[in-house]
Design a protein around this nucleic acid. Structure first.
Length: 493
RNA sequence: GCGGAAAUAGCUCAGCUGGUAGAGCAUCAGUUUCCCAAACUGAAGGCCGCGGGUUCGAAUCCCGUUUUCCGCUCCA
């Protein structure tokens, strides 16, 4: 990280706290690791990002509907999805090289080596012992096996191992008042499964025809081994996901379509296109047949903001298997090749999954500017958030030029009218210039000033955040001027 | 989880070799000004992250701990 981008990131974090966007959680108790709260302006900005996404995905597509599923789900769901097995690994660290390994993989490697050396009996014995230990979740036994079979760290070559520890990335809690193993439930580690298990409900009650999508915005929880870089990786985070159900064989086509549509959604906000890139997954997860990330160039490098994954029929098939309920779809459309309907099948799924908190940070970083306004006479600068007007927490601020002569009353009158449609702030404290700068800092696109002339002819000055230019307009026109700029039409058309 | 660095007012930071806390900005009240960081007067705000220890005395030295940042590591 270069010095200037490092500075930028630090400044954005300070700014986010100072102006009520993001606070460390439980700060008066020293904070809670990797958990953050959204403040008064942050909550508005986040809600606006959600609205933009929801409108673009649900409202603009007549074949996509939105749901809101519970965070608690049947524990079997996480067996079916692979999270119980895939999200909890026995790990061991080498104290010399500081490298961490999956204990079972170290043993697997050893088994392979035994096989290669022709020591098949040893290989079989170890395989048996390991399977036994894994089945019983006997972690100390796994370490014994590593010691017994003289396994050394591939990096340091030493046998100086820590104990084997279980890393489970899912948070668990008990359901029901009596603590009992049988009642363990997990906090969902992704929102997608809430969509998959409701796929049939939505399809039937909404009479959805393939292709169709189900969208959801919601919290997910992961007990990350390490969670850092501000709100990039949090233990509690929010996802905006859409699962698009398609006929098998057409997934490639839809995958490409969504890949492009999603990048377009990002770029519509006016963010520098050069900051974005696609990243193709070379090593695919077990459920996917194609995967692209949309990455953004954060001050600390390119990071995933959104993933577009072709998930095949893996999830629905798994749920059909584990639940015993048929999750197939009857497609009455005629296949031109066979002349018969496509009939019953389990749909394939294209997933678009965006991290809301990352999107929030991306938006803050892109908008943040420390602008030098110095002239020959005096030094001057301002901090301005160049947020898209649709996303700005406060749409307009209303100032009486002075605190007397009836100007505050007039200003309040205009505010009372505008606040029905827009989030408006009123300020009369301090000099006008200072009030402008305060609004710049939270990204308010318009400042409206009521002066003595307003009392005579009902005109006001409107000052634009980005250019700092002022214009005198009729107060009656404000609704339209602001309305045009903050209309979702600007992003969705 | 390992290694390194840091933590002092809302923010940015100063505080020397130990002697019970300071600046700028921000906040609040008032006076004055009135279209781009104005001035003046006053006020509030800190158990110096937390807990131990050394000492007559600790923001300062030592140990532990929490949180944050950086590098590994991890990342469905």
């Amino acid at each position: 990280m270069s010095k200037s981008t490092d500075e930028l990131f630090k400044n954005v974090i300070s700014h986010a706290k100072e102006y009520g966007f993001v606070f460390p959680s439980s700060e008066i108790y020293d904070g809670l690791s990797a958990v953050y709260d959204y403040g008064q302006n942050g909550a508005e900005l986040k809600n606006n990002i959600k609205t933009y996404w929801w409108k673009a995905m649900v409202q603009m597509h007549d074949n996509i509907v939105g749901i809101d599923s519970a965070i608690f789900m049947h524990p079997k769901i996480w067996k079916a999805s692979g999270h119980v097995d895939g999200f909890s690994d026995p790990m061991i660290d080498n104290k010399d090289s500081k490298k961490r390994y999956r204990a079972d993989q170290l043993l697997e490697d050893k088994i392979d080596r035994y096989d290669k050396d022709g020591k098949t009996d040893k290989a079989e014995a170890l395989q048996h012992d390991m399977d036994e230990a894994l089945k019983n979740e006997d972690l100390p036994r796994l370490k014994e096996l590593i010691i017994e079979h003289d396994i050394a760290c591939p990096v340091s070559g030493t046998r100086n191992w820590t104990d084997v520890r279980q890393f489970n990335l899912m948070f668990s809690t008990q359901m029901g008042a009596v603590a009992d193993d049988a009642d363990v439930v997990y906090l969902r580690p992704e929102t997608a499964q809430g969509i998959f298990v409701n796929y049939l409900n939505v399809q039937k009650s909404g009479r959805m025809k393939i292709p169709f999508g189900i969208a959801q915005i919601g919290k997910a929880f992961r007990n990350e081994v390490i969670a850092r870089q501000f709100i990039i990786r949090m233990r509690e985070f929010e996802q905006m996901e859409m699962q698009y159900f398609v006929r098998p064989g057409t997934q490639k086509e839809w995958f490409n379509q969504w890949k492009e549509a999603r990048l377009k959604w990002h770029l519509a906000l006016g963010t520098d296109a050069a900051k974005y890139r696609y990243h193709e997954h070379v090593k695919l997860a077990h459920y996917a047949d194609a995967a692209f990330d949309i990455e953004f160039n954060f001050p600390f490098g390119f990071k995933e903001v959104e993933g577009i994954h072709s998930r095949t029929d893996f999830d629905l098939s798994q749920h059909q298997k584990f639940s015993g309920k048929k999750l197939q779809y009857f497609d009455p459309e005629v296949d031109p090749e066979t002349g018969k309907p496509y009939g019953n099948y389990i749909p394939y799924v294209i997933e678009t999954s965006i991290g809301l908190d990352r999107m929030f940070l991306l938006t803050m970083i892109s908008a943040f500017e420390e602008e030098d306004l110095s002239t020959e006479e005096k030094q001057d600068s301002r901090t301005v958030l160049r947020l898209h007007p649709c996303l700005a927490p406060v749409k307009a601020a209303i100032f009486p030029l002075t605190k007397k002569d009836g100007l505050p009353e007039k200003a309040r009158e205009i505010m009372d009218r505008l606040k029905i449609d827009f989030n408006i702030q009123y300020e009369e404290k301090d000099a006008i210039g200072k009030r402008y700068r305060r609004q710049d800092a939270i990204g308010t696109p318009f400042c409206i000033t009521v002066d003595h002339q307003t009392l005579e002819d009902d005109t006001v000055t409107i000052r634009y955040r980005d250019t700092m230019a002022q214009e005198r307009v009729a107060s009656a026109d404000l609704d339209k001027i602001i309305g045009d700029q903050v209309s979702w039409r600007n992003l969705l058309k």
